[in-house]
Nucleic acid binder design. Structure first.
Length: 855
DNA sequence: CCCACACGC
DNA sequence: GCGTGTGGG
């Protein structure tokens, strides 16, 4: 504390000596940082930031601190340098208390800013951050407007390109690539003064003749965008364009508009012909297809989805960070607003899509919006296709990603039958147990203790019971009260039962709040939403279905195991599920080429966990007590998992504790300290299987460091945007195994769907089929066959074995055994054989810009 | 709105 | 490590 204060005083003294210091209001030192003029009278670029920061105030120039360094570094990529630019801020004074100026402050300085910009004309004013955007264009919302080419309201006629303030990306490294792309646009636009808008010819209220002529003129592919009411009961209009023409678009009105009902029926027939004849392109086109089918159309041939292609190419990109992907944000970072900012020159327009009133003007504007959606989807398709080709991902997109759309939407439509009796019974029992346990807890601790309140638990643990602090929370640094902490404190303590009680109540409350409100459709089935673009690794994700009033139930990927009996097969049917056995570990074995690991997988009935445990601990597990042997085996299962992904010793201890294993209970000769023990285990793994650490991990690190890109064994590419550090390497280690296993699973899922099986579940590497009981054997064969995708890595070919289970519901499933010779070879497959590159291919480029094709 | 926590793989 | 979701403050 003292050192901070001292340096603060030293800084103040420095300021006092500086001639730029003035005392404007009370004691606040207000330092003024004047703009830097370009070296010629004409600037290549005028750059407007928010206000000077500490470094700027100290040195007396704008953009000379951390954000400045970042800015100049990135601009140098586009051959633009400081001396060529006018560099200024909306407000010239530094305020130690307020990093960003308020609007009144900005407003006071607008005349000065305007004069500066006029004195040093430039073709482009680069508006960095919200403040500059507002000063220059009178707009707010930089997340929306970044990347847009705008006209300045402050200096009419002048072109503005908006971008994030570089200070933003110091904190969130991933955004660097998006800022870079926006700077690239600013520099390219600086070559000429005028604002060149895309030429658009939108027909927002076509006659029947115009519709027919347009629809009949469409070639191989049509781009479609449907607008409907939020509850999907009412179709507003359908925008259509003929790919790749993004200029001429029509919006066919289904509400209002000049056509009569009879005319519209005729147009619908023509539209259906387009769907039958053409490949259909769209943004999240599965949704449009679903709506169109609700209204009686058929859409058999989807050829491109901009959202999915963008997700495949840039899984981490997007306006929103991981943390802020909110409930209402359906598409994560891959919404059309963001995509069009990267691949088109259409200025931001997504705020225009609200139908405010029922007037002809409002409807016209709404259909213009509809047409814009189609136009930018077409332009983005052109750009994305070029990128797919450039990055060698076109094959993966068309033979894997695009083919997921129909099966996934079908599964979503299938839903799962709910056993409402079981649900009700379960709910009542949980509520009762919860009441009893809560009463017991309250009596034991002497107050009404809310187990979900960290405040209550901290009070109980540290103030009442005077227990030591074992762990602190990551962000706030407050004493943690999570399950791991409670288990640590419970170990060998008199409070074991008390903490058990707390955890029991927590578990029940989680269940009651998360999984008991579950609404089914009239057919008694529950339909969760599935997202193809939900994860960076390519896994499907599932979400709670939503309607106008909110949630209709839980998502499916974290339903507690013992609650899964509520999801069942209807009478006469069963549920059969399959997942890949130790798939990721097996992949690591073959990908690392480690002989010991490969041996473990090639030897039938070989238990590699026991083998590892025995060699690390130097004891034979058969000599141990049965109970203990099981704990030891579980322990080394976790050690195996941890080692593959570069986990540290402390994290290993935590993971073990959550599995109910206290590392203290495992005897190691000569080592007693838990952390040392964990280190010893991890070392033991690497000693036994040296290739993982000495060959496999370095290889991945090297790929990441030089190319920021990894490929999985099926050819899926992942570009990594994060800061190059240990955390990124760890994500990298998990990518190849995880992504490949996902690829194999999704392929199996698609095959089963194509063979006519009713798919009802897909959770990570598990797929579930609802089958008629008499077809059990057939279904089992189909699952086996669907999952059989041989992989070749470094000259060795292997197939990940699959575990198949069946039962009346999702919980009570028992293994289905099938003799190997019963498996008949069948040739049918849903996709033409795909080239399977085993090794990471060499991509030459090391600099990528999202939206390569934009001008 | 952010944080902590909990469930799954 | 990767996800989605709830409740507290």
């Amino acid at each position: 504390m003292f050192t901070i204060r001292r340096s603060w005083i030293a800084w103040l003294l420095r300021l006092a000596r500086s001639s730029r210091v003035g005392y404007r209001s009370r004691r606040l030192p207000m330092v003024t940082v004047p703009p830097d003029a370009p070296q010629s009278t004409r600037a290549k670029l005028a750059i407007v930031g928010a206000r000077p920061g500490k470094e700027e105030a100290r040195l007396g120039h704008p953009f000379v601190g951390g954000s400045g360094d970042e800015l100049w570094k990135l601009l140098a990529n586009h051959r633009t340098y400081r001396a060529q630019c006018l560099v200024t801020n909306t407000v010239l004074t530094f305020d130690p208390d307020r990093a960003l100026p308020t609007w009144p402050e900005i407003r006071d300085e607008l005349p000065r800013l305007k004069a500066e910009l006029e004195a040093h004309p430039s073709n482009v004013i680069l508006a960095l951050g919200n403040e500059a955007l507002q000063a220059l264009c009178g707009l707010r919302g930089i997340d929306s407007w970044r990347g847009s080419i705008l006209e300045s309201t402050l200096v009419p006629g002048r072109k503005v390109v908006a971008a994030w303030h570089p200070a933003n990306i110091l904190r969130t490294y991933e955004r660097r690539y998006i800022l870079d792309a926006d700077l690239r646009r600013a520099c390219l636009q600086a070559a000429f003064p005028e604002i060149r808008r895309p030429v658009r010819n939108f027909n927002t209220d076509p006659t029947i003749e115009e519709c027919v002529e347009f629809l009949r003129g469409i070639g191989d592919e049509a781009c479609v965008d449907v607008e409907c009411s939020r509850n999907t009961h009412r179709l507003y209009c359908v925008g259509v364009g003929a790919y790749p023409n993004s200029r001429d678009i029509i919006s066919i009105p289904f509400t209002r508009g000049q056509m009569t009902v009879t005319e519209r029926v005729y147009v619908c027939r023509e539209l259906q012909k387009v769907f039958d004849r053409c490949g259909i392109i769209g943004q999240n086109i599965g949704f449009d297809k679903w709506i169109l089918e609700l209204f009686g159309f058929r859409v058999p041939k989807i050829t491109f989805d901009t959202m999915l292609a963008h997700h495949l190419l840039w899984p981490e990109a997007g306006i929103r960070l991981k943390d802020d992907i909110g409930k209402d944000n359906f598409s994560g970072g891959h919404d059309l607003g963001f995509i069009s900012s990267c691949y088109t020159e259409e200025p931001y327009y997504k705020h225009e899509g609200h139908l405010s009133e029922d007037t002809p003007e409002a409807w016209t504007n709404f259909r213009i919006y509809n047409c814009k959606d189609v136009a930018v989807t077409i332009e983005s398709t052109v750009g994305l296709r070029q990128e797919l080709k450039e990055f060698g991902q076109a094959d993966y997109y068309y033979s894997h990603t695009n083919k997921l759309i129909d099966p996934v939407w079908r599964m979503q439509g299938n839903g799962l039958e709910i056993d409402s009796e079981a649900l009700k019974e379960r709910k009542e029992r949980l509520q009762l147990e919860n009441r009893v346990l809560q009463g017991r807890l309250n009596r034991a601790v002497g107050f009404d203790c809310n187990v979900k309140s960290t405040v209550h638990l901290r009070y109980l643990l540290h103030d009442k019971l005077h227990l030591p602090i074992k762990k602190r929370t990551k962000k706030g640094g407050a004493p943690s009260t999570d399950e791991e902490t409670l288990r640590t404190l419970a170990y060998n303590s008199p409070y074991t039962d008390l903490f058990k009680l707390i955890l029991d109540i927590r578990e029940r409350r989680t269940l009651l709040s998360g999984f008991m409100q579950l609404e089914t459709s009239q057919d008694g089935r529950y339909r969760a939403a599935y997202l193809i673009h939900g994860t960076d690794s390519g896994r499907l994700s599932s979400r709670a279905p939503k309607d106008l009033d909110g949630r209709l139930g839980p998502q499916l990927q974290n339903v507690p195991v013992h609650f899964r009996n509520v999801f069942r097969a209807p009478a006469g049917c069963g549920l059969m599920g399959a997942d890949l056995r130790r798939a990721e570990a097996m992949f690591v074995a073959y990908d690392s080429g480690d002989r010991g690991l490969i041996h473990a997988f090639e030897t039938p009935n070989f238990d590699s966990y026991i083998d590892l445990g025995e060699s690390v601990l130097g004891v034979k597990f058969v000599d141990l007590e049965k109970e203990l042997a099981k704990i030891y085996r579980d322990c080394f299962k976790q050690v195996t998992h941890a080692s593959n992904y570069g986990m540290g010793p402390l994290k290993l201890i935590a993971v073990l504790r959550l599995k109910g294993i206290d590392i203290e209970d495992i005897n190691v000769r000569g080592i007693h300290q838990p952390k040392r023990k964990a280190e010893y285990f991890l070392e033991g793994y690497h000693d036994k299987f040296p290739a993982v650490r000495h060959a496999w991990q370095p290889r991945i690190r090297e790929e990441l460091r030089t190319k920021r890109t990894l490929l999985d064994a099926l050819g899926r590419r992942r570009f990594f945007m994060g800061r190059m550090d240990e955390a990124l390497y760890r994500i990298g280690y998990s990518f190849r195994p995880q992504s490949t296993v996902v690829g194999v699973t999704n392929l199996a899922f698609r095959r089963l769907d194509a063979w006519g099986w009713k798919m009802v579940l897909q959770v990570h590497d598990f797929v579930g089929v609802e089958y008629p009981l008499e077809k059990e054997r057939e279904c089992c064969h189909a699952l086996h066959e669907a999952f059989r995708t041989p992989l070749t890595l470094h000259g060795r070919t292997f197939t990940i074995p699959v575990d198949i289970k069946a039962g009346p519901n999702w919980r009570d499933m028992k293994p289905v055994e099938i003799a190997a010779d019963e498996l008949v070879e069948r040739l049918h497959d849903v996709h033409s054989p795909t080239r399977i590159p085993g090794d990471v291919s060499s991509l030459e480029r090391d600099n990528y810009y999202i939206g390569l094709t934009r001008s």
